[in-house]
Design a protein around this nucleic acid. Sequence first.
DNA 1: GCGCGGCGATGCTAACATAGCAACATGCTC
DNA 2: GAGCATGTTGCTATGTTAGCATCGCCGCGC
Lengths: 251, 251
Amino acid sequence: MLPAQPNQSLIDGLACLQTLASSEAPIGSREMARLLGLEITRVNRLLKTLAALGLAEQDERRKYRPGPAIHVLAAQSLFGSGLLRRAIGPMESLYAFGHVVALGVLWRDKTAYLFHGHPSHPASHGLGHERLYPAASSGIGLILLAHRTEDEVRALYADPPVRLERTIPPEEVVPDLDGTNGLLARLARIRADGWALAPIPGSPNRTLAVGLGDQPDAGIGVSGRFGDHQIDELLGALHDVADQIVQKEQQ
Amino acid sequence: MLPAQPNQSLIDGLACLQTLASSEAPIGSREMARLLGLEITRVNRLLKTLAALGLAEQDERRKYRPGPAIHVLAAQSLFGSGLLRRAIGPMESLYAFGHVVALGVLWRDKTAYLFHGHPSHPASHGLGHERLYPAASSGIGLILLAHRTEDEVRALYADPPVRLERTIPPEEVVPDLDGTNGLLARLARIRADGWALAPIPGSPNRTLAVGLGDQPDAGIGVSGRFGDHQIDELLGALHDVADQIVQKEQQ
DNA sequence: GCGCGGCGATGCTAACATAGCAACATGCTC
DNA sequence: GAGCATGTTGCTATGTTAGCATCGCCGCGC
């Protein structure tokens, strides 16, 4: 829903910032331009502006990475979001199953994690360490995609603007959208089910995930090795936790 | 350090976003313009652009508050920052003193908290719930201000661009900068000491804080009721934790 | 219920902030 | 050292953006 006069500089500047914040490695200005499909000079100027604000900085090879003001933005957006604050208590009950517990959101065609913790570590250690993950390979990503329109999903994969390097599985592959085995059909099934189950490539583990509320902006999931006979119990717990989080939101 | 051609739209758009994310209450577009000293139409357009991106949304009274994409930004900036991930483990040792433990950063003339937790609650509950606090009244804010140049401090208080409403103490007051009892003299003492001690108005509590590293972008502190005789021990522990965090950063 | 004031938002158009071309300095690889 | 890719800037044209004027909406006080 674009306004009468959208500000393209702000849109593109935020794209640079979000890409930078999400990247595991520093990014050069020309590389960023290629990633986002924008003109080189323009991107350089946006990055230099972010650097002036402290939100970016250059390393010894002149590539850009997040700068000191990113800590400020993290504090502010955590406060403004309030989701982690509301979710983290109820989610602790999921540790009893002995699997990884995660809270994620959708960014373009990827899942970004607000929380991703394992019962063998304190809950506080699940913060800010998990890299982006292709949404179509992630339980949380799938449940969130399932609540997007077909057009929205098509647009995400038509020309994915950001293709960050990954050094570990899963490979970055554009999924087939159409046909019986296509992503859209899969999302329709997930939508009807109200939950998503995704295998983790190269691992015996899988993720079971549900969305928060009817129009979820975020999802929660458990990842680990569990049998089909355990799915109902896990689902019950996930839905219970999801309901608790949603109710906290409405207080 | 401004680049050759800074992008003012990006600068002002980010100011709107950061103000919105930090505010306890929704803000109208004209109010935002007054807060930031910008022209009304311009701010409306920036806010509408943020809304189109999902980073803002309007409530039933048409005022703006953070939108669903703020969760995405929170996840991304937590990942990009890495500070909470590194700090939260070492900081847990401070709970033994029985006081509030906090990790904060400086935003304009205010302290923003990445973490602010009490030993009676799990560490995971210290996240994203503490509102902005005037820096000159905050131990963490003071130690961070002490590492800014005199010109930077003067600029912060010359015409503070953002004056968010507060419904609880402390009052928003522009501190006297000059003179024996002025803020600048106080900051000089804090800089020489390497730590800051600040009373909490209307409370018997105080905050003892240190910065992380030699040029701190963030600070940690403990708040509570403690006697002067306990300061050395608390300082030792704070410095120890600060060193651990800084060392994690350099790995 | 009405009037007023403040609000959020838009169309239009001038203008100026910005974009892009060309060029330069720097860094890396062979 | 040469070649290529990189990050960056000055200059200038241009089109994105800013601001004026206006409109519809909302809340408050009488």
